[in-house]
Amino acid sequence: MTVDAKLAAPAVVRPAERTRRRQGSGIGRQLALQLLCLVIGVTVIFPVLWVVAMSIDPRNLQRPDTLFPPGASLDAYARVLARPTQNPVSFLTLALNSLFLAVVITVASVGIGVLAAYAFSRMSFRGREPLMIGILAVLMLPAVATIAPLFVSLNKIQIGTFNLRNSLVGVAIAIVSSQLPFAIWNMKGYLDTIPKELEEAAIVDGASRFQTFVRIILPLAKPVLAVTALFAFIAGWTEFILSWIFLTKPETFTLAMALNGMVGQYASSTPWSDFAAFAILFAIPPIFAYALLQRYIVGGLTVGGVKG
């Protein structure tokens, strides 16, 4: 609490006070602040630099030991791109499988979720309360909590040699099951803050509910659509828990599974340079997605809580 108070003080300085302080200890204060920022920055970036250092370490150690490896090479990147796992599966196949999960989950949870979110946010209808409680009840459930029934149910669906459980579609279904309630809740929270007057004006002008939804609400909801999509995309791209249990055919494996195959729970025999190189390649799409949508995050997440 004391930390809060100390840091709070400068944030609430009035213009008059500012002038006084600038004359007094402006540069010293700025330096102290920059130093504090730097210390925080170092702790933030250290683990990331540790991965980068590992990935270019030509020694491919089983116990990486330094931030400054002797020499640097991109061999590890070449190795994992050429042969990502023990199985005869290319890096591209793994990446496309991950992409498939990410895209299907994003489209399903945002597309289906936003319609439901709109109904919950804007309409008064019979059954609204029980349905909202139903969604709230499963909102907090992790994907793992329905893994047993989903596994055995999806496993019963067998068409010829195709087993739904042992397929990417099955995994996608299982993930949407836990992702959709979150999507609905997050988007509803944002839609609640969009003023009703905008729609009412349109309805007076003769627009239907669906028209106002498409022409007025969707454009205004862009930040929350972006953030919900971002979360769904990353959930799909990095998904490991369900795919590791569900999938057994190497051609359906994902990047996250391959990454786990390298480290598993047996770190002592991990080729760390290869792992780090793989990890960096794996992290590029999420980082790119974040960078692209960063400006929406503040609005798209915060407002979920602030009731307008």
């Binding site: 969604i135 949407v176 959709l180 509910r209």
Partner: peptide
Amino acid sequence: TAYLFLLPALLVMAIITF
């Protein structure tokens, strides 16, 4: 109208969540 909007989500959730 509300149930038309809710239909896809309810169908999906009934089958794969509830």
